[in-house]
Simulated scan of single mutants.
Amino acid sequence: MSSILRLHAIALCLALSTSIAGASPTSTQQTNATLVREAFTNWQQGKGTVFDLLAPDARWTVAGTSPVSGMYASKAELAQVVRSITARLATPIVPTVQSIIAEDDVVVVLWHGRATALDQKPYNNTYLWHMTFKNGQVIEVTAFLDTYALDDLMHRVKLVP
């Protein structure tokens, strides 16, 4: 085999092995993405939510400047905030996933949520959650959303004490 032909063969083997290695997701990525996909499916069907994946000491950050923006240091702390939102809704938020991307221990999901508020007006929002997993549980989340829509809901729908 000529030197040129050998170099071409080596280059082809390297190119193929690099593209195959780069294209193959790890089992952790697949597992975490599957957990998120199943949690959203369960949520759509009224059988739980993505919050079920949270570790008890998960840190959750809501980006932006809404009344609930900030960092929450536990699942219990976050639950209080979620209750303050859902208490203003006549129907549960129904999620529709647009995409899920996984890399290493991180899963990013882009989704849209629809509900009806207590004042019978729609509450629609788009979310992007950047979730970090450890041992099958979410340990950290940064949530991006339309904080204007959330702020509107929180100020528009007053809770009766």
Score class of each variant (00 low, 15 high):
L118N: 07
V81P: 06
V141Y: 07
S74R: 07
D105I: 08
A23N: 08
S66K: 10
Y123A: 09
A79Q: 01
K75A: 06
S69M: 14
A73M: 10
A23D: 13
E103G: 11
D104I: 05
V141M: 12
L118P: 02
R83N: 09
R114T: 15
T61L: 12
P67Q: 04
P122F: 15
A63S: 13
L14T: 07
V81S: 05
V141R: 10
Y72F: 14
F133T: 08
I93K: 14
Q44M: 09
D52L: 01
T65G: 08
Q30D: 11
T26L: 04
T86W: 11
L118Q: 06
F51N: 08
I20K: 00
T132G: 10
V107A: 03
R59F: 15
A90H: 00
W60C: 11
T49E: 03
R37C: 05
W43G: 09
A76H: 13
A76F: 00
A117F: 11
W60A: 13
P92N: 13
A11C: 11
T18W: 14
Q98T: 05
A73R: 12
N125F: 12
V81A: 11
L110D: 14
Q45M: 09
V106T: 12
A117W: 08
A11L: 08
I93E: 15
Q30L: 15
A21R: 12
A39R: 06
V68L: 13
T26R: 01
Q45T: 03
A87G: 06
D105G: 01
T34R: 14
A23Y: 06
V109K: 09
V36M: 06
K134Q: 12
G70Q: 02
Y127I: 06
A15R: 06
T142Q: 08
L54F: 03
A21D: 02
N125G: 03
S74T: 10
S19P: 12
L14P: 01
R37Q: 14
Q45V: 01
A11T: 06
D119K: 10
W129S: 15
L35N: 07
L128I: 07
D119P: 11
S69D: 13
P95R: 10
N124G: 10
M71H: 15
T31K: 04
I20P: 01
Q30R: 07
A87F: 12
V68G: 00
H112P: 06
L89T: 05
P25T: 01
Q80D: 13
V82D: 08
Q29R: 02
L128Q: 03
Q137S: 12
N42S: 03
A117H: 04
I85W: 15
N42M: 10
W111V: 14
G64R: 11
A87I: 02
Q120S: 10
D104M: 12
H112Q: 05
G48V: 00
P95A: 13
E38F: 07
A115I: 00
Q80T: 02
V106F: 09
S66A: 03
P67S: 10
T86F: 01
K121G: 06
G46V: 02
R88K: 13
E140G: 14
A63M: 13
N124H: 07
Y127S: 02
V82F: 14
D119V: 06
I20M: 09
V138F: 12
Q30S: 12
V50N: 04
S17W: 06
A63L: 10
